[in-house]
Deep mutational scan, measured.
Amino acid sequence: MASQGTKRSYEQMETDGERQNATEIRASVGKMIDGIGRFYIQMCTELKLSDYEGRLIQNSLTIERMVLSAFDERRNKYLEEHPSAGKDPKKTGGPIYKRVDRKWMRELVLYDKEEIRRIWRQANNGDDATAGLTHMMIWHSNLNDTTYQRTRALVRTGMDPRMCSLMQGSTLPRRSGAAGAAVKGVGTMVMELIRMIKRGINDRNFWRGENGRKTRSAYERMCNILKGKFQTAAQRAMMDQVRESRNPGNAEIEDLIFLARSALILRGSVAHKSCLPACVYGPAVASGYDFEKEGYSLVGIDPFKLLQNSQVYSLIRPNENPAHKSQLVWMACNSAAFEDLRVLSFIRGTKVSPRGKLSTRGVQIASNENMDAMESSTLELRSRYWAIRTRSGGNTNQQRASAGQISVQPAFSVQRNLPFDKPTIMAAFTGNTEGRTSDMRAEIIRMMEGAKPEEMSFQGRGVFELSDERAANPIVPSFDMSNEGSYFFGDNAEEYDN
C-alpha cells in the first residue's frame, strides 16, 4: 500500500510504541512475548500442572481467558453494579484439565481477579502490559475465525453469508486497541457500523446529549479505520460520505453494504499476525530463551520457528480426527482463516481442507461434555516452508469459486491468482447506482469489472525454506488448481455463540 510509510507498523501498534527502528520493534515485541511466557509459567505453578498438562491447549485457553477477564475493567465495573446470582464479580476462573488415573478430569478453578492481575503485572515488570493482553485477544479471535462461520451475524446486519472472507476479527472485544483495529476485516468494521446506525434509528437519543457526542466521535473513528483499509480513492470518498452524514440511517447502511461487497474484489488491507497460545510461549521462556534479547516478529519467520520446536497437546472428542484438529489450530496460529487453501497447503506441506470436510468441533470443551471418553493427542503445528504475512489485500483475480465463501483475504505475501467468483459478486451490483453516491458507485463498479483474471497478485513473492531466515531465496510455489480455494466452501461450520 502506498501510504505504508505514514502508518505505524503493526509491531508498533502491538507494543504501543512511538516510531521505533526494526531492532527496537523486535525487542519490544519480544518483551511482550516474554511477559506472556513468564505469566503462563507462574500460572502453571499456581495450578500445580504437570509439564504435559501445561502444554494442553484447553488449559492455555482457560488461563488466557482468566487474565483477560481480570483486566476487563468495563465488564468488571458492570458486574459490580449489576450483581447477578451466583456470579462473584471479583473472581474469575474456568475449567482446568488434569490427568488422573490414566483419565482426563475437569476441575473448575476460581481465583481472585486481583490475584491474577498481581501475577500478570509481576510477570511483566510491574506494568499492565496491555500489548500482551491484546495479543491474547487476537489469538482467540484468530481461533474463532478458523472455527466458526459468522453466517447468522452477517444475515442479521443485512449482509450476504458468502462475504465471510471479510469477517476477520469479528469476535475481537471493543477494547483491543490499535492492534485489534489493524486485524479487523472490512466486513467486521461494516458490521460494527451498521449495528451502531441501527441503534440510532431505533433509539432517538442515541446521537443526542453528552453521551451522543461520545457516540458520534466513536462512529467517526470507526469510519476512519474502515476508510484506511480501502485502497481505492472511490471507496475512500464513499467512506467520507458515510462519516460526514448528519443523521446516519438506511442510506448509510446501503452504502456500507455496497462497500463491503466491493471489497470482495477491490480488497481492503487487513493486517495478519501470528499470535500463538500462551502454552507455546511459556515452555520456550522456561527453556531459557530470551525473546527480548533475541527479538521477535509476528509477521516473519519467528512464529514458524517457534511452532517448529513446540509440543502442544489437545483434548480430542471420541469421533474427532486429531489431524483435522491440528489443521484448525495451525490455521489459527498463522492467522489464515480466509487465505486461499492452495497457498496454505503449499506452505504447510500437507493438504489443507475446507472447514466442512474437517471432523472436528471447536477447541474448547463445553462444561456439560462427558470427560470419560476424552483422549488427548499432539497437535501437528509444523510447516514445510515459511512466508511473510501481508497486510495488503493483493490485486484481484477471477477463479472458480464456491457456493460458500466467494473470495479470499490473503494472509501471506505469496504470488498467486486470487480466487473470487466474479459473476456471483457482480450480480449483486445491478441497477442500484442512484442517489448521492452514484458517481462513486459507478466508478467502483467500473474498477471491479476491469479486474483481470490473468493478473498475478504479489508478483514474484515466494515462500522460503525454514533454514532461509533472511528470506534470501524465494520459492514461487505451484498450486494444484483442481483443489478448492475457499475454506468455508459450501460450508456447515458451527455458528459462533458468545
Rank of each mutant, 00 (worst) to 15 (best):
Y10T: 00
Y10H: 12
E11V: 05
M13P: 05
G17M: 05
E18F: 02
N21K: 05
S28P: 00
G30I: 07
R38M: 10
T45H: 00
L49E: 01
L49T: 00
G54I: 13
L56N: 01
I57C: 12
I63F: 02
A70M: 04
R75G: 15
L79I: 13
G86S: 03
K91L: 05
G93M: 08
Y97T: 03
D101G: 09
R102T: 01
Y111H: 15
D112C: 15
W120P: 02
D127Q: 01
D128L: 01
G132M: 11
G132C: 09
H135V: 09
I138M: 03
T146D: 08
T151N: 12
A153Q: 04
M159K: 08
M167E: 07
G169W: 10
S170A: 04
S170R: 05
L172S: 15
P173G: 04
P173A: 00
A181Q: 00
A181T: 05
V186T: 01
T188C: 03
I194Q: 04
K198Q: 01
I201W: 01
R208M: 08
R216E: 10
M222P: 08
L226N: 11
D240Y: 12
S245F: 08
R246N: 02
S262A: 13
I265T: 07
I265D: 12
S269P: 08
A278K: 09
C279K: 12
P283T: 00
A286H: 13
Y289M: 14
F291V: 08
L298V: 02
G300K: 11
L307Q: 14
L307E: 13
N309T: 00
S310R: 08
Y313P: 02
E320W: 09
W330G: 02
Q364E: 05
Q364Y: 02
M374N: 07
S376D: 15
L381G: 03
R382T: 02
Y385V: 03
R389P: 05
S392C: 14
Q398F: 02
S407M: 10
Q415G: 01
L418Y: 10
M426C: 00
A428L: 03
P453Y: 06
G460N: 12
G460E: 06
V463D: 13
D468H: 09
E469H: 02
P474A: 01
Y487Q: 11
F488D: 11
D497V: 14
N498E: 15
